[in-house]
Each structure stands twice: as structure tokens, then as C-alpha cells.
Design a protein around this nucleic acid. Structure first.
Lengths: 150, 150
DNA sequence: CAATCTGGTCTTAAAATAGAACTAGAATTC
DNA sequence: GAATTCTAGTTCTATTTTAAGACCAGATTG
């Protein structure tokens, strides 16, 4: 009676995406992966997640093609979890969340991590959406065309 | 023993953002709000969410300043839930999720809703992140500077 | 003013989560 | 090379969250 509902077949890419990475932990694991975390224990330390949860999340994300396992880069017999191409496609989701969080959830002098351009060492500017003609688009400039819902 | 852990004080804006909108339903509610859904019953129909869940989610999102209530626009005595400025700041999160979903979770001919530029009626192009110097940035071009974790 | 619609609350059963205890194989130390 | 510790899990249980339906009060419609 209480199985979580799936949105996979809603015909909406947002819903389908959330069906895959919309739980409480997945995006945090993926964020860590972008930051270079690779080993089970590293994820656990970084996130403070229960081992059981982490194990099932890593398995699910791997099954879903977002992470893949690789032999440990330090020569030991352990394995590592790294982002696939599909997984690294979530970069802009993380960036958008980060920028929204910075802008709306922090007071001016509260300490927080920040994302910089590796080359210039400057903070990464705000993401922007542009139309084909180069015009900047806000949510009022867009519209979603629905598809028949099955 | 099983209360969901909070990431509010991790010093990471991504974590803090997910603490606020990272549950199973919030982003879907917010997506609907962008698409013009305003009334309790509309959200319920659109999402297939249990009334109890919807009631608490709407209350939480309102308390957190993402939605606000307004008198119904059709003249009745009911109320509506509309995005605040803070809430509409999540637009690019939704766009990023949508674009990732389209690109990685659909086969070529599977039907899905799509986002268009209201003015040109053309599909919205891919989001891109650019550095201060205009260069396009991928995740390999960026780095997150950590802050001491309290 | 009777019926129905809207927007909830309350209750219950199932599922997800957190946390701890346990385990097996790998690596390290003695 | 035996003992110890580390790593990466699995299993177990208590608690919380979720889903779904019954119930309800006030607003609206016929």
C-alpha cells in the first residue's frame, strides 16, 4: 500500500529524470563523484550515510548506467565507482542546484564551498538559458508542450 | 532511529538545496507550478499524489518560501499556490533535469513533452555553462573549493 | 436548501531509512 | 606467515515516511 509511485511513464523528461535520481541520496553521491570521490568508504565518510543505504544506492546508480565500477586506481584489489558519460551529463543539474542554493539559502557571510573555473580560478558565473536567437530566456519566455498522457 | 538526515549544515549549497527540495515530490510540484498549475486539486490530478502528501508538501514549500498562497484567480473563495521569486529561481534546475532526461532516458521516437521558446516556438537549446571569458565549461574545467566542515 | 465540489485531516499498512552488529576477503603489521 | 586491522559490504531491527482510503467541513452549484 505504500510503494513509492513511479513517474517513468508520465511522458515528462523531468519526471523520468527524477524517477532515476530523485531520491534523497543519489544527487549527493553524484555531486561527490564530480568532486573526485571514488571509493565506498570515501562516500560514506563524506556523506555520513548508512552503509546499507550507500550499498543499494551505488548498486542502483550502477545498474542505471550513471556510475560504473573500475579497479582501484591505487593498485589495491578494491574497486572504485566513477561517473559514466550519462552520469556526468548531470553536471548542469548540480550546478543549477548549487547556484540556487547559494543565492537563496545562505546569508551573505555564511561559509560555503564554491565552484571555480580551474583555468582562471575565478568563480563560475551564473548559468543562463538562451534561445536560438541568443536572447536570454526566463521561465516566462518558455512553455511546455504536453503529450497525451497514457 | 530512522529520521531522515539533514544536509543543511554540510557547507555545500548543493546539499542545502537538496535538503529543501530534494524529496520525492517537491520538484514535481514545482515543475507543475511552472506549467501553470495552481490549485490543490489540479496538483493532485496532475501528479497522482496522495492528498495527505500533497497537503504537507504544499505546506512545507510555502513555509520555506518557495510557494505562496494567493486568493483564487477565478473569484471563488479558494486559494492558489504560486511560485515566489525564490521558487521560480529553480527554473534552471528543472530545465537541466529535463534536458538530461531527454538526452539519456528516452529512445528516439518515444513521445515526451518538450519545452519551447514562446516567442519563436522553437525548442529551447541546450543549457551551457560559460566561464567569465566566454569559454564553455564542462565538469572537467571546474573545481569545488571546500570549506571547513563544522 | 440539497447535492456536490474542494481542500483538506486522520487512520492504517506497507515500504524506505538509519543505525548497529556482523562478516569475509584484502592489506598491513609484527 | 600469523595476527591484526581495514575495506566493503550484508543482515537485522526500530522508526519514520509514504500511499491510499475513509472521513469531514466549508464553499459552490443546481
Amino acid at each position: 500500500m505504500a510503494k513509492r509511485v513511479s513517474h517513468w511513464n508520465d511522458g515528462c523528461p523531468v519526471a523520468r529524470a527524477l524517477d532515476v535520481i530523485g531520491d534523497w541520496w543519489s544527487l549527493l553521491i553524484i555531486r561527490d563523484a564530480f568532486d573526485g570521490v571514488r571509493r565506498f568508504g570515501e562516500f560514506q565518510n563524506s556523506l555520513g550515510i548508512a552503509k546499507g543505504m550507500l550499498a543499494t544506492r551505488l548498486r542502483d546508480l550502477t545498474e542505471r548506467g550513471i556510475l560504473k565500477t573500475a579497479p582501484a586506481s591505487d593498485g589495491t584489489a578494491y574497486r572504485e565507482y566513477v561517473l559514466t558519460k550519462k552520469g556526468s551529463g548531470l553536471f548542469l543539474v548540480i550546478v543549477a542546484l548549487r547556484q540556487w542554493g547559494e543565492e537563496h539559502l545562505y546569508t551573505a557571510n555564511e561559509p560555503r564551498s564554491s565552484m571555480i573555473d580551474r583555468e582562471t580560478r575565478a568563480p563560475v558565473p551564473r548559468l543562463e538559458l538562451h534561445g536560438k536567437n541568443g536572447r536570454r530566456l526566463t521561465w516566462r519566455d518558455t512553455e511546455v508542450l504536453k503529450v497525451v498522457r497514457k
